[in-house]
Amino acid sequence: MEILSSRLILRPADYPTTLRFYRDALGLAIAREYPGGTVFFAGQSMVELAAHGGSAGPSTFHGALWLQVRDLQDVQAELTRAGVPIVRASQQEPWGLHEMWIADPDGVPIVLVQVPADHPLRRDTR
C-alpha cells in the first residue's frame, strides 16, 4: 500500500466553536475550505474539521493530536492570553520531550511538544 497523504478528521459537536479554536486560538493556517468543512495545515500533516456527522455528546476520540512547536513556554503564554485552559502545564517528560496538554472544545486531547536540541529526535538523522 502506498500512502500519498494523510490527515486527521474531526467531527465536532459545535463546528463554529471548534473552528474558532483551531483557527483563532491555535492559529493554524487554513489549507482549504469547502461547504461544511475546513482543512488546516498542521506541520507535515493536516487537521480537517467536518461540520457533518458531529456528535451531540462528549468526544469518543481515543488518542491525542500531537503538535510540535518551537518554544513551548511562548506557546503556553500565548494560549493563556487567549483564554485557552491548560490541562497540564509544560514540563519535561522522562523521555526528554517538553510537553503541555490542552483540549479542543469537544475534549480531544492536544499534546504540544518541544523537542530539545539534545534529544535523539534531533540527533538521529536516519
Results as ranks from 00 to 15, higher is better:
49 L>S: 01
73 Q>W: 08
75 V>W: 06
74 D>C: 08
6 S>N: 13
12 P>N: 08
58 P>Y: 08
21 F>W: 04
75 V>Y: 05
33 E>I: 03
90 S>T: 14
10 L>W: 04
71 D>W: 02
15 Y>K: 08
87 V>S: 12
68 Q>M: 07
5 S>W: 09
23 R>T: 00
22 Y>I: 00
83 G>A: 15
86 I>V: 14
40 F>S: 01
55 S>Y: 09
31 A>N: 09
52 H>P: 06
81 R>W: 07
24 D>N: 03
53 G>N: 08
48 E>Y: 00
75 V>S: 02
76 Q>T: 07
10 L>S: 04
86 I>M: 05
95 W>E: 14
29 A>N: 05
52 H>Q: 15
99 E>H: 07
94 P>F: 11
84 V>C: 05
42 A>R: 04
45 S>Y: 05
40 F>Q: 04
27 G>L: 03
93 E>Q: 13
98 H>F: 13
76 Q>Y: 05
43 G>S: 11
46 M>C: 14
11 R>K: 15
87 V>L: 13
29 A>W: 04
9 I>Y: 04
99 E>N: 11
87 V>N: 09
44 Q>V: 14
18 T>W: 03
26 L>N: 03
89 A>T: 11
6 S>D: 14
13 A>T: 10
54 G>Y: 00
91 Q>I: 07
17 T>F: 07
49 L>E: 02
82 A>Q: 15
34 Y>I: 06
29 A>C: 07
89 A>I: 07
23 R>Y: 03
27 G>R: 02
15 Y>I: 01
47 V>F: 06
78 E>T: 11
83 G>Q: 08
82 A>K: 14
88 R>A: 14
92 Q>R: 11
93 E>Y: 09
54 G>R: 06
20 R>D: 11
10 L>P: 02
73 Q>H: 15
54 G>N: 03
91 Q>T: 12
11 R>M: 12
29 A>G: 08
4 L>V: 09
75 V>C: 00
39 V>E: 02
8 L>Q: 07
60 T>G: 11
77 A>H: 10
39 V>P: 01
62 H>L: 15
4 L>T: 15
59 S>W: 01
68 Q>F: 09
13 A>Q: 12
23 R>G: 04
12 P>A: 06
48 E>R: 00
47 V>C: 05
64 A>K: 06
45 S>E: 12
42 A>N: 01
79 L>R: 07
73 Q>R: 14
20 R>F: 06
25 A>D: 09
51 A>T: 01
50 A>D: 12
29 A>Q: 05
81 R>F: 08
88 R>E: 15
53 G>I: 01
52 H>M: 13
16 P>H: 04
40 F>A: 00
14 D>N: 14
39 V>S: 01
87 V>I: 12
4 L>Q: 13
80 T>G: 06
74 D>T: 13
